[in-house]
Design a protein around this nucleic acid. Structure first.
Length: 497
RNA sequence: GGGCCCGUAGCUCAGCCCGGUAGAGCAGGCGGCUCUUAACCGCAAGAUCGGGGGUUCGAAUCCCCUCGGGCCCGCCA
């Protein structure tokens, strides 16, 4: 950039001076370093005002530099925490002291070597014999006390948000360590993690607007997947019995506090089990993840209390009974589409008049029941009209074997006993096509053909992992659990080049 | 898609209502300081006030357009 501020120029000049003095501002290595937490632990064992004999090497980012004439204190952050570096003329000599502090700025990545010391004020520190610049920061870090506050900058420059905000760093670590815990849990239950295509001829398995693209090689239009469901069920036909996939799905819709066009879905399929088995699996899963969240984020109230909130067994309510109870309307399943539309309108829902009957039932449920579901609750046995891929209930007419898990006003899981009758599947797809122009499950003829070879009785589960992380870490906005949420391209060329 | 709000120095903010040509803290520069931890003290520097247009003798401030963002509502998980 040719319009760089004086701050960048100063830092660039320091790097140049280092080179002239034979000190590389971007060296290749800094071996044998230990986490700062190791030094902190060692220094804590000392009595105040004394140093240990042992030598340690640490590396990280300088957060603050306090120079007091012939003494200096520097705060160094690494992933394990932070450590105060302590430099004194008494130990280093005038020249050594000056040399160590020359050219350092907050934000620089540095390595340091020295002895653990507990200062007279009791701060665990490293009394340094040397400090080496490992990467000279040419741009200044944000203000040390407030960090980045602008939500836009925190997203566009997430790396700055991460190094400047321990809360942000811990939240994202927790999010991905929860994903790891989820994998471990499912692996222990004998599920195989698989990968299926993101690019598909027709996106199906859910009702959503797909992103579209095209393949030069195939000379055909392609879509980005909106769900993982149909390829995974093909694997049940193939005999894999217990499979899951964690991956991004794409829905070409708006971004708000709980929605984003690209998000992370986990779907799991389990042959020879039904949705009651799945309920137990989900309880065990959330129980384990809540424990993990509490261990990872002990200072975050929502995480600390998660094991209490997610203690099995979770509450169970019947979709229709609960909706009738809270709305005061009886015989919901006996109502036709016009009657349901009138009820939905009365409840303030604004879906189009020609929406399918299931849509109106969903709206009524959202209005009357969802706000009441704070503690983890399974909502079971949805009306058949809401769900084209679930198996009809074995004993309750007009229902499907489906549950959703709700907690804190958010959906945290959706599961069915899976439809495995290919003729009925074809019929349900056709019914979707006649329902309405856009908002339907696309007909997947190849999937019906796969099912004709025989798909075992089975159960499936979907969990939005971003929302799972929100619920377990107490994060109100989905953007704060996604590292790089979508942002409009900047129109003014501030980035040089 | 509708409504409300925000954009001022690298960062965090004040100034805008009531127009007179921009102020602080942090960071950076120079000087001082041997136990600080938002270190402290002194000096100097740093801003086309998101962009464009208009009103006016005069616009960060008022009006219009536009770009980016946030919140709420609608839609989707």
């Amino acid at each position: 950039m040719d319009d760089e501020s004086h701050l960048v120029r100063e830092r660039r000049a320091k790097a140049e001076r280092m080179r002239r003095e034979g000190r590389e501002p971007f060296p290749w290595e800094f071996p044998r370093r230990v986490p700062t937490a190791v030094v902190v632990a060692s220094a804590r064992k000392l009595t105040a005002g004394t140093a240990a004999e042992s030598t340690f090497r640490v590396a990280g980012r300088l957060r603050a530099i306090r120079i007091h004439g012939k003494t200096a204190f520097l705060d160094l952050d690494d992933l394990s925490g932070s450590l105060q570096l302590f430099a004194r003329v008494d130990e280093l000599g005038e020249e050594g002291f000056a040399r160590i502090l020359a050219h350092l700025d907050p934000g620089d990545l540095v390595g340091a070597e020295g002895h653990p010391v507990l200062t007279r004020r009791g701060e665990p520190s490293l009394q340094v014999g040397s400090i080496t610049v490992l990467a000279k920061a040419l741009r200044p870090p944000p203000e040390k006390w407030h960090g980045l506050q602008d939500p836009e900058e925190r997203i566009r420059r997430r790396y700055v948000d991460l190094f400047a905000s321990p809360e942000s760093r811990e939240r994202f670590r927790a999010r991905f360590l929860l994903t790891r815990a989820l994998r471990r849990h499912l692996d222990e239950l004998g599920f195989l993690e698989v990968e299926t295509p993101v690019l598909v001829p027709v996106a199906s398995g859910a009702a959503a607007q797909p992103f579209t693209t095209a393949s030069n090689y195939l000379d055909q239009d392609l879509q980005l997947r909106i769900a993982l469901e149909l390829p995974l069920k093909r694997l049940l036909v193939g005999g894999l019995e217990r499979v899951y996939e964690i991956g991004h799905v794409f829905r070409n819709e708006d971004l708000d506090s709980t929605h984003t066009p690209e998000f992370t879905m986990m779907e799991l399929y389990w042959a020879y089990a039904d949705y009651t088995d799945m309920r137990r699996l989900v309880e065990g899963l959330y129980k384990g993840l809540a424990r993990e969240a509490a261990d990872l984020l002990p200072d975050v109230p929502a995480a600390r209390t998660a094991p209490e909130r997610f203690r099995p067994p979770f509450a169970v309510v019947d979709f229709v009974d609960e909706l009738e109870r809270l709305s005061g309307v009886s015989d919901l399943l006996g109502k036709d589409r016009d009657a349901l539309r009138a009820l939905a309108r009365a409840a303030g829902a604004t879906v189009p008049d020609d929406s399918p009957a299931g849509k109106f039932l969903d709206k009524l449920f959202e209005h009357y029941v969802e706000p009441t579901l704070d503690r983890p609750t399974f909502v079971v046995d949805f009306p058949a009209a809401t769900t084209p891929l679930a198996k009809r209930h074995r004993s309750r007419p007009g229902r499907v074997e489906r549950f959703e898990l709700f907690a804190g006003g958010m959906e945290l899981g959706n599961a069915y006993t899976e439809l495995n009758d290919p003729d009925e599947q074809a019929e349900r797809f056709r019914a979707q096509l006649s329902e309405r122009g856009e908002d339907h499950y696309a007909y997947d003829a190849d999937f019906v053909e796969a099912m004709q070879y025989g798909m075992p009785p089975s159960t499936g589960l979907g969990i939005g992992l971003d929302r799972m992380a929100m619920a377990l870490t107490g994060t109100p906005s989905i953007k704060d659990v996604i590292l790089f949420p979508p942002a409009r391209a900047r129109t003014n060329p501030t980035s040089g080049l």
